[in-house]
Measured scan of single mutants.
Amino acid sequence: MIINNLKLIREKKKISQSELAALLEVSRQTINGIEKNKYNPSLQLALKIAYYLNTPLEDIFQWQ
Rank of each mutant, 00 (worst) to 15 (best):
I49H: 00
I3Q: 09
S16Q: 06
Q17A: 09
Q17R: 09
R28H: 10
I31R: 00
G33Y: 13
Q29G: 13
Q17P: 06
L20E: 00
M1R: 05
E25G: 12
Q64L: 07
N37P: 02
S27K: 07
P56L: 05
L57E: 02
Q62S: 10
A22R: 13
L45F: 09
P41G: 03
Q44C: 10
K14E: 11
L24R: 01
L53M: 07
Q17V: 14
I34F: 04
L6E: 01
E35A: 01
L24V: 15
S18I: 14
Q44G: 13
R10E: 01
Q64H: 11
A46V: 05
L6S: 03
I3L: 15
N4S: 04
S18H: 12
M1H: 07
Q64K: 10
L47Q: 13
A22G: 11
Q44R: 11
L57C: 05
P56E: 08
S42C: 06
I31H: 00
N40E: 15
W63V: 05
S18F: 12
F61C: 02
M1C: 07
Q62K: 11
K48M: 09
Q44V: 13
L57N: 02
E35T: 01
E19Y: 11
Q29A: 14
S18E: 15
A46M: 10
I9W: 06
Q29T: 13
G33V: 10
K12C: 08
N4D: 02
I34D: 00
Q62V: 13
K36F: 08
Q29H: 13
Q62P: 07
T55M: 09
K12V: 08
D59I: 08
E58H: 13
R28F: 09
L45R: 02
T55W: 05
N40K: 11
A50T: 04
L24T: 14
S27V: 03
E11A: 09
Y39I: 14
Q29E: 15
W63M: 05
V26A: 04
R10H: 01
A50N: 01
K13G: 05
I3H: 07
L57T: 04
R28P: 15
T30W: 09
E11Q: 12
P41M: 05
I49F: 04
P41I: 10
G33I: 08
N40T: 14
A46L: 05
S16C: 05
L43Y: 15
I3Y: 07
Y52Q: 09
I49A: 04
G33C: 11
N40M: 15
K38L: 15
L20Y: 01
L8E: 15
I60M: 06
E58S: 13
L57V: 12
Q29I: 11
I3S: 10
Q44D: 12
K14H: 15
N54I: 05
L20A: 02
